[in-house]
C-alpha cells in the first residue's frame, strides 16, 4: 500500500477526534456533549493503541510462559505488540467511566434545577 493509505489508523483517529470536538463545541444538548467527550477519549485511545501495534506481532502474552514447560529460548520483542500503550489505555478506559459518571451527575443536577438539558434554554433561565 502507498504510505499515505497505510497509515489509515492515524487518519481515522483524526476524524474521530474532529467528530468528538465538534460535538463538544456545537451540540446544544448536554448529554450529546458528554457523548462527544467520550468519542474524543476513544479517539485518543485509538491513537495510543496504534502506536503500540506491530506488523505480524502477537498479543502481549508470552507463549508457553507458564507451567512446567517454560521455554528458555530468547524472546524477540518484535514478536509481541508493545504492552506499554495498552497498560496506559486500559486504565484510561476505566477512568473514563468515572469521569462519565461525574459528567452525567452534573447533567442530572442541572436538569433537576433548570428542568432542561438544552444549553440555550438554561442560559435563558440564567439571565
Amino acid at each position: 500500500m502507498p504510505p499515505l493509505i497505510a497509515d489509515y489508523n492515524y487518519w481515522i483517529y483524526i476524524l474521530l477526534m474532529m467528530i468528538g470536538l465538534y460535538a463538544m463545541l456545537a451540540k446544544n444538548n448536554l448529554v450529546k456533549k458528554v457523548i462527544g467527550m467520550s468519542i474524543f477519549q476513544t479517539a485518543i485511545i485509538v491513537f495510543y493503541v496504534s502506536t503500540g501495534a506491530k506488523h505480524k506481532a502477537s498479543i502481549p502474552i508470552i507463549a508457553h510462559g507458564h507451567g512446567h514447560d517454560v521455554v528458555e529460548t530468547a524472546i524477540d520483542f518484535t514478536h509481541y505488540a508493545n504492552p506499554l500503550p495498552h497498560v496506559l489505555m486500559l486504565t484510561a478506559i476505566v477512568v473514563s467511566v468515572g469521569t462519565l459518571g461525574v459528567a452525567l451527575a452534573i447533567c442530572l443536577g442541572i436538569y433537576k434545577r433548570y428542568n432542561s438539558l438544552e444549553e440555550d434554554e438554561i442560559q435563558e433561565q440564567l439571565q
Binding site: I59, P60, H86, M89
Partner: peptide, 15 residues
Amino acid sequence: EMGSVDVAFTEASVG
C-alpha cells in the same frame, strides 16, 4: 484486531 486484548476486554465491560 490490533492485538491489545486487555484493552478490548476493558472496553467490552466498561464501554
